[in-house]
Write a protein that binds this DNA or RNA. Structure first.
Lengths: 235, 235
DNA sequence: TAGAGACGTAAGAGGTTCGTGAAGCAGTGG
DNA sequence: CCACTGCTTCACGAACCTCTTACGTCTCTA
């Protein structure tokens, strides 16, 4: 993957947006901005930012609603920004899934520190170590490079995503619903046909005999499982 | 198996400690207290609390030092409490591994909300897959894997579902109606023949001698029962 | 010991789920 | 505008599971 860490700023005040964009980009983050809640939700779905800075007072829908909508399908860290210092509002926001809550005016260095904390939590949650492997199959997450016995395998974006999910849970049975929500999003959790096609693709590229799979096992009525594989002999 | 969530309060002011203990215990947390940094570090090692509330101004060593020492070996969530609102100090604390930073005076409901946020992060990090077990039979609910004496047993979706119900009520007599309702739904509560077939399947896969079952016992006219089994010897 | 009711087991029909090849469709770059 | 790639959708045979039926066994009671 290595793209820059991307921050989405959802705030209706142009001044604040500018300040945040300037500050974050100076630190090397990529930034996206949205001036309404609806747009913010769309951009979250579209661009999958690594962190969201969300103003609670928006023109169309409240920041809390934006947060709730996003939390239906994403665990991206969200830091709430607010002009009001109302404790009750803080509690609601934090319990709705916000990761932090900052009251304006706040210092930029504190904001950056809290962004780092949120991203740190996230990276602990993601098992995003730079190389995932299971036996002879290795995936370098940063460079998108996949190898089988050291030979490179060409994968499309979706195949790669699916493989990554399997590699993050080696040996475990992953349900249809789980795989579909992880790779395609919660709206696709019924589309088991996608899995048939893409697990098929992975088998075609990794299995010796696709008719009798030894890596990607079907668990009928439940889901699929990537077996724990032997480490290849070190030559 | 569920022990209460334990909070360790490291603060030298008795008043604050009392207030925090009172508030947290009212919410159902277990609390521990330490009035010096050194003691706090010891208690962290000894009692492995689930979260730490750490005052930054301590008599012996600074809260930052306490944090650094703890972070050498533990990822327990730490929320810093401080009387000072110095931004620079916040940044240092957060970058040293603190999960949040609250400036006194703060509201108790905000504190509790931030404790919940910290614990939520932690529970996402832990990959504690819940395991149901009875003797040598183990079911990892998340990964749907079943083992008997460590060897994996292949189960169909229905068999798995039925086994889960048994494991959730070990040793208890479960009526036909109850089992049928749980696994097949209330519309099937008369279909006791299903149970004969599927309990038979489980016996075939788990019992040594299916003609004299020692695990899945028939309670004639009532239902079935999964006996409490001996823990397997630790080798 | 006979009979009735409940239970266990085997086997097959039927239906659901799977795998796979191929056809639409959308986006990209020449 | 066309060729190319990859995602989605469709169609159909194969594989598998669930449900059903049939029948034998066990247990309790008279």
């Amino acid at each position: 993957m290595h793209h820059k860490t991307t921050a989405l700023i959802i705030d209706d005040e142009a001044q604040i947006r500018k300040l945040l964009v300037f500050t974050l980009e100076k630190q090397g983050y990529r930034t996206l901005t949205a001036d309404t809640g609806t747009l913010g939700i769309e951009m979250t779905a579209m661009h999958k930012p690594d962190i969201i800075l969300l103003d609670i007072g928006l023109p169309d829908i409240t920041g809390i609603d934006v947060l709730s909508r996003i939390r239906e399908w994403s665990q991206v860290p969200v830091i709430i920004l607010s002009v009001r210092d109302r404790e009750e509002e803080k509690v609601v926001a934090l319990d709705k899934g916000a990761d932090d809550y900052l009251t304006k005016p706040f210092g930029m260095s504190e904001l950056l520190a809290r962004v780092r904390v949120a991203l740190r939590h996230q990276s602990q949650t993601d098992t995003t170590s730079s190389i995932l492997s299971n036996g002879a199959i290795k995936l370098d997450v940063a460079s998108h490079l996949v190898t089988l016995h050291g030979r490179e395998i060409e994968l499309t974006a979706t195949e790669l995503h699916l493989l990554r999910i399997f590699l993050q849970h080696p040996g475990k049975i992953l349900t249809h619903t789980f795989l579909l929500t992880e790779v395609w999003g919660t709206a696709f959790k019924e589309e088991t046909q996608y899995l048939r096609v893409y697990v098929g693709n992975l088998r075609r590229k990794f299995e010796k005999d696709t008719t009798r799979p030894t890596i990607f096992i079907t668990e009928p009525g439940i889901g699929y499982r990537m077996l724990l594989l032997e480490e290849p002999p070190i030559l």
